[in-house]
C-alpha cells in the first residue's frame, strides 16, 4: 500500500471538480484509492462519500492507495496535486 499526504490548496476545497478530474485520470488503473480527512474516510469511487468529508482549503488529506498498479496511481495523484487537481 502506498500513502500520500498533503494539504488542500484549492480555494473551494476538494469537492466535485477535483474529484471528477482525478477519477477521470485514474480510470482503468488497477488501484483502490481511499481518502482520509477530518477523521473520516471514503473510497474515491463514492462521490457522496467524498463530498461528505467536507474537505476545505487547508485541510490535511491522506490518500491510501492499494492494488496492482498502486505506484502508477500514486504518481498520477502526485502530478495532479501540483496543479491543484485543476486539470
Amino acid at each position: 500500500m502506498e500513502n500520500l499526504a498533503f494539504e488542500v490548496k484549492n480555494e473551494e476545497g476538494f469537492h466535485i471538480k477535483p474529484l471528477t478530474n482525478l477519477s477521470k485520470k485514474l480510470k482503468g488503473i488497477d488501484a483502490d484509492v481511499v481518502i482520509n480527512a477530518n477523521g473520516k474516510e471514503s473510497n474515491i469511487k463514492s462521490v457522496l462519500g467524498v463530498l461528505a468529508l467536507g474537505i476545505k482549503k487547508g485541510d490535511k488529506v491522506e490518500f491510501k492507495i492499494s492494488g496492482k498498479e498502486e505506484q502508477k496511481a500514486k504518481d498520477i495523484i502526485v502530478e495532479m496535486e501540483k496543479e491543484g487537481f485543476e486539470n
Binding site: L19, T20, K24, K45, S46, L48
Partner: peptide, 11 residues
C-alpha cells in the same frame, strides 16, 4: 463529466 461520475458511483 461529474454527472457521469456520479452515475457510476456504486454506492
Amino acid at each position: 463529466q461529474s454527472r457521469a461520475l456520479m452515475l457510476e458511483d456504486e454506492e
